[in-house]
Each structure stands twice: as C-alpha cells, then as structure tokens.
Design a protein around this nucleic acid. Sequence first.
DNA 1: TAGTGGTCTAGACCACAAT
DNA 2: TTGTGGTCTAGACCACTAT
Lengths: 235, 235
Amino acid sequence: MAEPVYLRIADDIRKQITYGLLSANDPLSSEKELCSKYSVSRMTVRKSLSILVDENLLYSVPGKGYFTKKINRDKYLFLFDELDILIGSNKESQLMEVEIIKPTAELIYQLRVSPDKRIVVIKHLLYSDGEIVAYDIKYIPYFTGIPIVEKEINYITFPEIIASRTSIFDVHRKIAISMEIPPDEIINLLNISSLDPVIIIQQHILDQESLPIGFGQLYCHYKKCRIEGVSVIGE
Amino acid sequence: MAEPVYLRIADDIRKQITYGLLSANDPLSSEKELCSKYSVSRMTVRKSLSILVDENLLYSVPGKGYFTKKINRDKYLFLFDELDILIGSNKESQLMEVEIIKPTAELIYQLRVSPDKRIVVIKHLLYSDGEIVAYDIKYIPYFTGIPIVEKEINYITFPEIIASRTSIFDVHRKIAISMEIPPDEIINLLNISSLDPVIIIQQHILDQESLPIGFGQLYCHYKKCRIEGVSVIGE
DNA sequence: TAGTGGTCTAGACCACAAT
DNA sequence: TTGTGGTCTAGACCACTAT
C-alpha cells in the first residue's frame, strides 16, 4: 500500500477547502455520501474526517454534519525552558534561597489566597557563561508535603513541585512575556543600569478549575534572552 | 451512554502512566490483550490508544507494540497576532510604504537570494491608543502576481501574501522574540530614547523544504508589548 | 512462524437535528 | 420519520518484528 486510502481522501477534501471551493462554515457532504463518492467504508471516511478535524479545518455537529472552519494561522508553538531561552553556551541554574513568607498584596491577588496563608518562595539565579543573566522567583501556597529542603528543590521543575500535591495532568499553565524596568533588588542582582528594562516571563500554574496554585516570575537581562517558536495551524 | 467506553479505557491507562505504574518506554499490553481485559472490540481499544498517542503519552511501533513516553510539559501555545500583543484598547495597523529594493547583505542571507533578485518591502506602523508603538517590516522576494498595490496589501496577512504564490498549507513559520537597542531609524519612528531597547519579533516564512520565502521584523516599544500563551503537553 | 500494529469492510444501535 | 454523526462489534488482510 503506497498511501493509505484515508490519507488520499483527506488530501482531496483538504484541497477543496484550501483552494476555496469550500469556504468558512460551509457544510460538507455527509459521511454516507462520502462513502459512496470514494467507494469506501464509513470507518475510512471517518478516519479522513478526523484528520481534518484534528487539523482544525473541520468541525462536526452531531445530527447535522461536518462544516468547514475559518482558518487562523497565528498560533505558535513555543518550546519554553528557563535555560533554553538564555543566549550563551554554558548555562546553569543555581538555587539561591527558599523561604516561607506571608503573602504580599500582589501574591494575595495572584494566588487568590487569604492573607494568613503561608507562601513558599523559591529563588534561583540563572547563569550564562559564568555571568548572572536572569533571576527566577516562584511562589507556591504552603501545603504539607511540599519540598522545602534545598536539595529536593534543586532538581525538579515548577510543575513537578506542584504535581506532588495533585496529578500533573490536572494542571495547566499560562505564560506571559513582557518588559519592564525592574525593582531595585533585581537591578542589583542582574547588575544592570537602573534604566534598563528586563524581560519578564510570568507563569501561572492553574488547576482544573483554573484556580491558581502557583505563580512565578523570571527576570532576564534583555540582551541574554531569545524565545523561539514554530507556527501551527489553529482555529 | 453516560461516558463512552473508549474514554473510560483511556482514563484507566492514563492513570497507570500518571501514577507511575508505567514509566518511560515501558511496553504496554498489546491491543489484543487490552481487548480481552476490557471485553471490547479492537476498534474501541484503538480509539482509546489513539487518544493517548495524541496526548503524547504513548507511541506505537508497528510490529512491536505501544510504549509509554517521557513527559515534557515545557511547550507553550502562543496566540500571536501583531495587534493582539500590543497593550492598549484602540489598536490599529497602518500601511506606511511599499517599495521594491535590491537586497542588502542581511536579506541575501535571510532570504537566501542572489544579489540581483528584487525584494518587495512592506512597512507598517502599529498604533495603540493613538500613539505609534510598533514598526513592522516585511521582505518578500519579488514574484509575478505579488500584490504591490497599497490597497491590496492593507488587509491581508503576511502568510496570505505569500500563499498567493503557493498553497498556504505548504508554508510554515518560525518566530523568535528578543530585545535589542534598535537602529536610529526605528528610534526616531517609535520616538524612544536612544538607550531604550525594543522587543524584536522576527518571523521567517518557510516552504516545505524549509527554504525561506519571506522574512519580517516587528519592532515594538518595550512597554507596549505583552505576549501570552498556554501550556500544552508535548513530547 | 507467530505476534504486533496499520488499514479496511460491512454491518449495528444510539442520541440528536430537521421535517 | 428520516438523516446525521457518535459509538461499537466481529471479522479481514497487510507489513513488519521477533524467534
């Protein structure tokens, strides 16, 4: 078998969408009609259609049929890793400090906690070619079992710390990249001028109900950071 | 039917992976064995397994079986739109200039073209709340049929311009975010201090063979840009 | 040779849409 | 009532892997 039948059918339908024979929200022929048209069984047609649904070119409505989707190609898939985004060859992360604090006003807001809740703070310094280029700070509401011993923390990722409380599949993350002139503490740590902005990468870790269970900020020297991604076809 | 059988089976296998009963690269029971275990047909088992393959928890090797995958949760999906990333409420894009030039040394490198090839340059200014906050410049090697009339260009996206030459499904994009102190031309346009870095979002549009067919750079005022994304489970 | 996943057929019943 | 997609069964043949 050179090319599976279901791929040939998927290609055929994809072309009809691509070349504009079908436009947004146009109904497709029914599965049964496509079975006759291509002389295949329903399962084969469904396999073809499922590929196009995965590609976000089609959606189906039970009892009605399949419809074409509007295309938006403005989604990028980014590989985001604290060390990967740093420019340089010798990169390493060093645990700086672990402490337990009472939440500031911002943390009360960001983590939706009460003022008397204790917060675990984990600070890292990130080095590139021997220089400090970034400072990372993570906040997690205290819970029994959370690792607070430095040795334990140094080798696990932010989601892993939190996953010790819940299943790793029940959390998702949001990220935001922006720039600001940082507070003095960061200016000193990164050894930059008081007028230089830094790149801030803000991470929110959320549970299934989208309630925050962790919050982190990475401050990075503006010359030492580069974030890369590739496009995906999306809704 | 409250919950389809294939979802119940997928959940069951997912739990075994999540809770560490199966670790990376462990072989799974064969489809046939799973059919017996859950008393369902092969198609139902395959549907369950295909979900887990889509979730990047499993991979299959023809003739051998299914195996569990190492999890990496460091991929983010970003919605990237030139106007969406600007901070502000009233945002608009204005075509500034279209011209045809001979390529500079950088363009010869970025677009892999010969020095005598003509390049179409499209410049936009991006406004937020009435202020110029970003400057966008796109380079596309000239080809017959490329829109160079201002009216035509103003309302189509970068990939769409290029897709007029090839199918939109044959192109993919790479993006990189970094910061730099920009050249004087940009300093003047954005009306910033000569010491302020800007956010540079670099876009490469590539064809099926990963050869460049378009190159663009967006220079954005560092205070006026914020890029957001959500995590996905990846390989 | 036996076992595996990949592909495919020809049916079936269900819940839901449109009429 | 008819047509639709969603789910599911019980087979089949193929290419590939391991022995």
